[in-house]
Every structure is written in structure tokens, then in C-alpha cells.
């Protein structure tokens, strides 16, 4: 890419991010939007707190609780960013009916999606921080790390976001060619990942081969990596036996692989959607 080309791409990317922010937030004043953005992820965390409290007889301390809590805090990137990127397609095509205009503009759908993902990323990061703060300040979750794990955690976080975006691109591509199934696919993807990636319980709890399915997704390694870097706590069972270096190495490789696969699949499906005249389809989902 030439320097002029890079400048143009950045300009398009910034415009998409700005537009994404307006679409997400301009229906309310910033305070109401902040409450709205934080209410759902915080509620999801508090459900887990309530469940743990009921089972443990009110005790909210110990590594096990912290392990569940931090895993759930980072999982917010799935519904907000991964599914959010995919929702952009459904929303813009069906609800606002602007996808065809974006496609006809010089910005390009891929750059547009990347820009919109920034908004989703910011919202997810705010939610994650709020959940972690609530854990540390109110629920007594004790965060501790080492310099090496903190560094690995920071690098691992970036890889996790890349992998999550890649998976979001895959779903976004599916949204371009499927009709109503895309909505259920988005909902279902979050459900499947919550179930198989050890977000809130060790994968060993799952029956038979399903306990190994999560190993295919960077999310499993990301959540485990984040727990180790924030708490120094390992999962119970087979994931917990894997050394830190391997966890972060598998995270890096799987994240890059999923990004490459997601981007390739997205472009293929976008091409197919154009060939089949699906870019301006509305289905009253």
C-alpha cells in the first residue's frame, strides 16, 4: 500500500468509526448511553455472582469465584464486539437500509466494518473495565500479577481482540448471504462460545468430545490467558495443566489464523452476495 493509499484508508476507517459511534450512541445523552451500555454486561456478571453466592452459601471469595468472574468480564467482547460486527450487516441492510449506499461509496464494506468494530471495541472495553472494577472494589476480587504475566497479558489482549474481530467477520459474511438465519446465527454463536470456551466453567465439565471443541477457538486461550495475567489463577482440569507460554503462543497462532480465515471468508461471501444480488435484500427479519 502506498503512503497516499494508507492515508485514504485511515480517513475511511476514521469516518466509519465516527459513523459507528453516532449510530450506537446519538439516540441518548452520554450519561444515559453509558448506563445503557454498562447495564447489560454488569447484569450478566451479577447473575453469576448471585448463582455463586447461592451455591456457596453467600461466600464470594477464593480463586474459583475470581476465575469465573474475570472470565465472564472478558467474555463481554463476544456479544458486544464479535456479534456486534455481525449485527452491523443485519442492522444496516434490514433496519436502516443503508448497506447498498455504503457499498456504492468509495469506503468499501470491509473498511466500514473495521471502523464500526472500533466502536464496538470501545464499548466492550468500557464494559470489561467496569466489571473488573466492580469485582475489585465491591466484590473483593483480588487481582495480582507478575511483570512477565502482565506483559504477556497485554500482548495476549491484542491477539484476543484480533481473533474476536476475525470471528466477527466470518459471522458478518454469513449475514450477507443468509436471511433470517443470520440473526439466530449471531445469537447462537455467542451461546456456543459461552458454552464451549470455558468462559465460566472449566471445559472438562462438558460431556464427551464437546470438551475439546473450545480448543479450536482463540477465545478459550484468550480467557485463560487473561485470567492468568490478572489473577495468576489457572483453570481446573486439562486447560490448567498447560504452561503459560503455551497458552499465549496458541492464543497468538489461533487468533491470527481466525483473523485470516474470517477475512477470507468474509470477502468470499461478500463477492457471492454481490453476484446473487443480496446486498440490498430486506427480509423483515
Amino acid at each position: 500500500m502506498t503512503q497516499a493509499g494508507a492515508r485514504t484508508w485511515i480517513r475511511h476507517f476514521r469516518s466509519a468509526a465516527w459513523l459507528g459511534w453516532q449510530v450506537e450512541s446519538n439516540w441518548a445523552d452520554p450519561y444515559i448511553f453509558a448506563v445503557y451500555a454498562l447495564a447489560r454486561p454488569l447484569a450478566l456478571s451479577l447473575i453469576l455472582v448471585a448463582i455463586y453466592s447461592v451455591v456457596s452459601g453467600g461466600a464470594l471469595h477464593g480463586d474459583r469465584f475470581a476465575w469465573i468472574y474475570v472470565g465472564n468480564a472478558f467474555f463481554v467482547f463476544v456479544p458486544l464486539m464479535l456479534v456486534g460486527v455481525a449485527w452491523t450487516i443485519t442492522e444496516d441492510r434490514e433496519q436502516f437500509q443503508i448497506l447498498k449506499y455504503i457499498y456504492a461509496s468509495p469506503i468499501g464494506l470491509f473498511t466500514y466494518l473495521a471502523g464500526r468494530a472500533v466502536t464496538k471495541f470501545v464499548t466492550a472495553t468500557m464494559s470489561c473495565i467496569a466489571i473488573l472494577l466492580l469485582g475489585g472494589l465491591v466484590l473483593g476480587v483480588h487481582y495480582h500479577t507478575t511483570p512477565l504475566l502482565a506483559l504477556a497479558g497485554m500482548v495476549g489482549f491484542v491477539f484476543g481482540v484480533i481473533g474476536t474481530f476475525g470471528m466477527g467477520l466470518l459471522l458478518a459474511g454469513a449475514g450477507l448471504v443468509f436471511a433470517r438465519q443470520a440473526v439466530n446465527l449471531n445469537e447462537g454463536a455467542a451461546g456456543v462460545l459461552y458454552l464451549v470456551c470455558g468462559a465460566v466453567f472449566p471445559v472438562d465439565t462438558l460431556p464427551g468430545f464437546t470438551r475439546y471443541v473450545g480448543f479450536l477457538f482463540p477465545l478459550t486461550w484468550w480467557l485463560e490467558g487473561m485470567r492468568r495475567s490478572w489473577l495468576g489463577v489457572r483453570a481446573a482440569g486439562m486447560v490448567g495443566e498447560i504452561p503459560d507460554a503455551v497458552i499465549f503462543a496458541v492464543l497468538a497462532v489461533s487468533a491470527v489464523a481466525w483473523y485470516a480465515f474470517g477475512a477470507w471468508t468474509y470477502r468470499t461471501l461478500e463477492h457471492r452476495a454481490k453476484q446473487q444480488g443480496l446486498l440490498d435484500r430486506t427480509t423483515a427479519f
Binding site: Q181, N184, E187, G191, V192
Partner: peptide, 22 residues
């Protein structure tokens, strides 16, 4: 898709209880 996918959330909560030994 309407039937199967939403059940996953329910399954997750069942396994959370199992994971906690409830």
C-alpha cells in the same frame, strides 16, 4: 435455528451449576 440456538444459554447455566458442584 429458532429452537436449538437459544437453548444454548440454558445449557450454559446448567453446566455452571455442574461446574460449581451445586
Amino acid at each position: 435455528s429458532d429452537t436449538i440456538l437459544p437453548i444454548l444459554g440454558m445449557l450454559a447455566y446448567v453446566y455452571i451449576y455442574r461446574g460449581l458442584g451445586a
